[in-house]
Structure formats: structure tokens, C-alpha cells
């Protein structure tokens, strides 16, 4: 099953990360969060970044999404996208891509939506910001179709609801609909299923696979769950304490792990799942 997914349809490179280095300075001693991180993402590719908590994988995801805090953080290296270095460009350039070409969904579907804004308004937000040429009716139509595409039942009704009226799985679907409404080139999924129960997890994974297959959206999938990564990703990057310890196609990494840390992670997967 899993092996079928690992033959990567390699498109041209769209994102290139070179020597990414992130360091915190808000404590007494500087803390290195990410060091010497290199990655090239191709069009239509799904890359998994795995590692334990504190390995720097989420920090890397936030760096690509342009969500690094601007305080107490030292950064070096490059994140090249569309001819710009997203790590050092000015904020308006960054905002130009955020939500339009590069989108992100988070680990916490319960709290990632604005509790006081109707679902429809939140799904449409990226269009309101990036595609001012669209009329309110066109935005609404796009939102309804995006909500339909992520499998939300009765989009018409959900459009006017508030987040607290939806379950965690539904809220994550709303997040995905909002993140994909403007057909971004890159979708970053930062542990999107961790807070959800297992059946919902499988549905979200299937949904991500569908988005990748239908729209050619490249996905960076951050997870500590190797079995999920194996099901979904073409390529895998293994991180530990801020550094890459191993990288390769999913098959290579899972069938023939080179690093003892990777072997340890793989051994920790319950065998039934494999």
C-alpha cells in the first residue's frame, strides 16, 4: 500500500532552503533551534519532516510560512521562493505570498480559528486579502466549493456557523479549506492530525493526498508519527535536535535507514500499522 505512494512525480523545484539556521536569544544562553537545514521542494511533491518534539521541525515549518517571531531570534541562510528570500525579504513581499502561494495548517484545530468570526468569512479571508478583484458573491462561491472539496457536509449551513459549533475534525477541514482556497503552490501541514482521533486522522491524510493529486499542491508534512509519513510522503527528512540526520525517498529511509536515530524511530512504530 504505502510503497505505491513513494514513486515521486518530480516536477521542477519551487522552494529551496539553504543553510537555514535559527537561534533564540530570549534566555540567558542562545538556543539553536535549527541548524544547517537544506531542502529542495519540487512541484507536486509531498515531503515529510519527522522528528521528536524539540527537533526543530515545527520551527522550520513556521520559517517557511513566514511566521517566525521577529523578536529574540537570530536567523541566517535562505528560503528561496519565486526569486525572493522569504527569510530576509521585507514583510510586504512575504505577505504577498502568505495565504496565497504558501499556506499552513496547524496542530491545534480547536484554537486556530477566530472564535468570533463566522466560518465562511475565515475560509474566504485569503481571497479578501489577495484577490480584491473578486466580488463578494464570487468569494462566497469559491468558499462554498472549497468547503465542499474538503468534505464539509452542508457547506451552505457551515458557512454561517461559528467555530465552537464544529468538532475538531470539522475545524481542521475548515482550516484546510481556508488554506487551499486560492490554490497555493505549497501547503505546510504542521502536525495536522495530532489533536484528532484515529479515524479522523485517516480522513485528513486522505484529504491531503487528494489535494496533492488534484491540484498538484506540494505539501510539507510535519509529524512525529512515522506511520503517517510513510503512508503519505514521497520523500522524508529526519530531524534531531535542530539538524537533519537523514534524508531520502520514503522507501529508502524506511526500508534501509542509515542513521541509528532513524532506526530507533522506525522500531518505535507499532508493527501492526506497518
Amino acid at each position: 500500500m504505502a510503497a505505491a505512494m513513494t514513486t515521486a512525480p518530480l516536477g521542477e523545484p519551487i522552494l529551496e532552503i539553504r543553510d537555514l539556521h535559527l537561534e533564540f536569544h530570549d534566555h540567558d544562553r542562545p538556543e539553536v533551534a535549527v541548524a544547517d537545514f537544506d531542502l529542495t521542494l519540487h512541484r507536486g511533491e509531498i515531503v515529510g519532516i519527522v522528528g521528536e518534539s524539540g527537533s526543530g521541525k515545527s520551527m522550520t515549518a513556521h520559517a517557511i510560512a513566514g511566521l517566525l517571531s521577529r523578536h529574540a531570534l537570530e536567523r541566517s541562510g535562505q528560503i528561496l521562493f519565486d526569486g525572493h528570500d522569504l527569510l530576509h525579504c521585507d514583510r510586504s513581499t512575504l505577505r504577498h505570498y502568505q495565504g496565497d502561494e504558501i499556506s499552513i495548517i496547524f496542530q491545534e484545530p480547536m484554537t486556530s480559528l477566530d472564535p468570533l468570526q463566522r466560518i465562511g468569512m475565515q475560509v474566504e479571508e485569503a481571497l479578501r486579502i489577495h484577490h480584491k478583484e473578486l466580488s463578494a458573491g464570487e468569494r462566497r462561491a469559491a468558499a462554498l466549493s472549497a468547503m465542499d472539496a474538503v468534505g464539509l457536509p452542508d457547506p451552505q449551513q457551515v458557512y454561517g456557523m461559528f467555530p465552537h459549533e464544529l468538532s475538531g475534525g470539522m475545524r481542521q477541514r475548515v482550516m484546510i479549506a481556508a488554506a487551499t482556497i486560492s490554490k497555493p503552490q505549497i501547503l505546510i501541514a504542521d502536525e495536522p492530525t495530532t489533536a484528532l482521533d484515529v479515524t479522523i486522522q485517516a480522513q485528513i491524510i486522505a484529504l491531503l493526498r487528494k489535494i496533492n493529486a488534484e491540484d498538484g499542491t506540494a505539501i510539507i508534512f510535519i509529524s512525529h508519527d512515522l506511520s503517517l509519513v510513510r503512508q503519505l510522503c514521497h520523500r522524508v527528512v529526519v530531524m534531531r535536535q535542530g539538524e537533519i540526520v537523514e534524508t531520502g525517498t520514503a522507501d529508502e529511509v524506511f526500508e534501509n535507514p542509515q542513521h541509528s536515530y532513524t532506526r530507533m524511530l522506525i522500531d518505535a512504530i507499532p508493527k501492526v500499522v506497518l
Binding site: R91, S92, T111, L113, D114, P115, Q117, E125, I129, A178
Partner: peptide, 21 residues
């Protein structure tokens, strides 16, 4: 809070995040 991070991720500027959410 997390929804503020979401708002930034969609390309809002500071005023958009502040007054919109």
C-alpha cells in the same frame, strides 16, 4: 493565541490581524 497566528499566515498585515480579528 493561535487564531492570531492563523490570521498572519493568510497574509494579513498587522492592522488586518488587529482590527480584523
Amino acid at each position: 493565541k493561535n487564531y492570531t497566528r492563523t490570521a498572519y499566515s493568510r497574509g494579513n498585515d498587522t492592522n488586518g490581524v488587529l482590527f480584523g480579528h
